[in-house]
Computed example of a mutant assay.
Amino acid sequence: METQNVTLSLPKELLRQAKHLAIEQGTSLSGLLAQLLKEATKSKDEYVEAREHHLAVLNNLDLGTEGKAGWTRGDLHVRQPGQTVC
């Protein structure tokens, strides 16, 4: 895989902590950042794919109503005699 150098400006304390984390994981700071960015972009790609799949399922969902409700708002809110609103 071809790589490219980048310049980052990070708070000193964050950089110190990130270096320690990289050492604990047995990798370099570049390796740690590359892995984190890879996971973040993979997660985003998976979300987009799942969203598109579920929207396609919803678009093909047939409730047998032909897109029209068989009731009115009033039908849904009819109260029985003596019934009180909580």
Rank of each mutant, 00 (worst) to 15 (best):
M1N: 02
M1Y: 03
M1D: 09
E2K: 03
Q4H: 01
N5A: 09
N5H: 14
V6D: 04
V6M: 09
V6I: 01
T7D: 07
T7R: 00
L8S: 00
L8V: 06
L8F: 06
L8I: 03
S9Y: 13
S9F: 12
L10I: 04
L10K: 07
L10M: 10
K12I: 08
K12W: 09
K12H: 02
K12Q: 02
E13W: 06
E13M: 10
E13F: 12
L15W: 14
R16E: 08
R16T: 05
Q17F: 07
Q17G: 10
Q17L: 15
A18D: 01
A18N: 00
K19H: 03
K19C: 13
H20D: 15
H20G: 14
L21W: 10
L21C: 12
L21H: 14
A22E: 04
I23C: 00
E24K: 00
G26Y: 03
G26C: 11
T27P: 01
T27F: 06
T27L: 00
T27K: 04
T27W: 05
S28G: 05
S28L: 10
S28P: 04
S30T: 02
S30E: 06
G31T: 08
L32K: 00
L32T: 02
L33T: 05
L33N: 05
L33H: 06
L33Y: 02
A34S: 12
A34N: 05
A34C: 13
A34K: 06
Q35C: 07
Q35Y: 07
L36Y: 10
L36P: 04
L37I: 10
K38S: 14
K38C: 14
K38F: 15
E39V: 05
E39R: 02
E39L: 07
A40I: 02
T41Q: 09
K42D: 12
K42G: 04
S43Q: 14
K44M: 11
D45N: 12
D45E: 15
E46W: 04
Y47F: 15
Y47H: 14
V48Y: 12
V48Q: 11
V48R: 04
A50D: 06
R51H: 01
R51G: 00
R51F: 08
E52S: 09
H53F: 14
H53W: 08
H53V: 10
H54W: 13
H54T: 12
A56K: 11
V57W: 04
V57N: 01
L58D: 11
L58V: 09
L58P: 06
L58G: 02
N60R: 14
N60Q: 15
L61K: 11
L61F: 13
D62A: 07
T65F: 07
T65P: 07
T65Q: 02
E66M: 08
E66V: 07
G67A: 09
G67C: 12
A69T: 12
A69S: 03
A69D: 03
G70W: 06
G70Y: 08
G70P: 01
G70F: 13
W71Y: 15
W71S: 01
W71P: 05
W71H: 03
T72H: 08
T72G: 13
R73P: 05
G74M: 01
D75F: 13
D75E: 15
D75P: 11
D75M: 08
D75G: 08
H77W: 01
V78H: 15
Q80V: 00
Q80F: 11
Q80G: 06
P81A: 15
P81W: 09
P81I: 05
G82A: 04
Q83R: 10
T84K: 13
V85P: 00
V85A: 11
V85T: 14
C86F: 01
C86H: 11
